[in-house]
Amino acid sequence: MKFSVFTASTPDWTPAEAARTIAAQGWDGIEWRVVDQQPAAEPGFWAGNRATWPLTGLEESLPEIARLTREAGLEFSGIGGYAGCGDHANVDRMLAATAELGARQVRVTMPRSDLGDYRELFAGARADMERAAAVAASLGVKALVELHHETITPSASAALRLLDGLDPEAVGVIHDLGNLLIEGQERTLSALQLLGPYLAHVHVKNVAWLPGEPEADGTVRWRHDWAPLRSGAGDVDAYFRALHEFGYDGWVTCEDFSTAVPLEQRTRENLAYLREVEARTRAAVPA
């Protein structure tokens, strides 16, 4: 396996700082966040993220993205795009940028499930992905669907239904440990087997479920929050064992949105932990 960092999780660093630090820590690659974001007084994961490339003017930024990545000695694990599948013009731009960079694969986002009748949203997204698959195939890249809570594809089953019959060389799925703890969780090995050739990429983060204060009648409502890899509800060892059992040996991208420790320490310790878990679980799975 190869390990990379998604720069959504490195908001304090400029692109140059992100590439330099990630490379110095020994990561294999980087997954650049590309989106037009809101400004913020302080850097944050979703607004004011300094390690994000704007979608506006992206084409002019491609030489600098390529230079920073290349000079740091990093590979592209993919591109973290936010273009919605129905935004055809920007999907095409992201696919073309991915091809120009040699980044191989890019995320295309799915509609939120609360935007209308699920059946209509799903049918529209299927048509959009059929179109995206054709464009991706013409460029030699892959459009990725992430398993993400509160969208029409929170689970492997839903993603397979969306993509089934399309060329797995042109479309694929990002399996995500953390997102699935919020919505869409299925037995990991079963989900990987279900996806089969559509499993293209893996994201790793972790989540904690926390109880709220009891209400007057004693009802307790739970909420989720991002957690460090070691202490969240997700069993990282079990996750890697399933990946090894399935035979996955591709990219694993870390996107740790917890803030218990400073960013540079967090990324450094996460790489050490992931490599330790990967080696331990690989040895535990019969060849």
Rank of each mutant, 00 (worst) to 15 (best):
V35N: 03
R20W: 06
L229I: 10
E183V: 10
A89M: 13
P214G: 03
I182H: 07
L271H: 11
G48Q: 00
P39E: 06
S4Q: 01
T267W: 02
D167V: 07
A19K: 00
Q37C: 06
A24H: 00
E255W: 06
L144K: 11
T281K: 08
H175F: 14
Q38N: 09
R230H: 12
Q185R: 15
G124K: 09
Y239G: 08
L139E: 11
P15W: 04
R241Q: 14
R268Y: 07
T98A: 14
G73D: 01
P262H: 03
I22K: 06
Q37W: 00
D114Q: 03
R282G: 05
L55D: 01
H149R: 15
L68I: 10
E146L: 13
K205S: 01
E59L: 04
D225Q: 15
W27T: 05
P63K: 01
M94D: 13
A127F: 00
V91T: 05
D237L: 12
F45Q: 02
M94Y: 14
W226T: 13
R223H: 12
G172S: 01
V204S: 02
D235C: 14
L181R: 06
F45A: 05
Y118P: 08
I65D: 03
Q185Y: 15
A66E: 11
F6C: 15
L180R: 13
A99C: 13
A123N: 05
R241A: 14
D128G: 06
A260F: 07
A287G: 06
L195S: 08
L263D: 06
A279F: 05
G165W: 07
A19T: 05
L263H: 01
L62W: 05
N179W: 06
R112Y: 15
G172W: 04
A134H: 08
T7C: 06
A97M: 11
E75L: 14
P54Y: 06
A284D: 11
M110E: 07
L74A: 07
A89K: 13
P168C: 08
D12P: 00
E42Y: 01
L55C: 02
A96C: 14
L181A: 09
H88Y: 15
P111I: 06
D128N: 11
P262T: 06
L162E: 01
Q265F: 00
H201P: 11
P262Y: 12
A24N: 03
P262S: 02
L101W: 10
L147D: 04
L58G: 09
A287E: 12
A158L: 09
L62D: 11
W32L: 02
Q105T: 06
A134I: 10
A72N: 04
V236F: 09
H244R: 12
W46T: 08
E31H: 04
R266H: 03
T109I: 15
T219I: 07
A19F: 02
Y82L: 09
G80M: 10
F3P: 00
A216D: 10
E186T: 04
G250L: 11
P197W: 01
E186Q: 09
A143W: 04
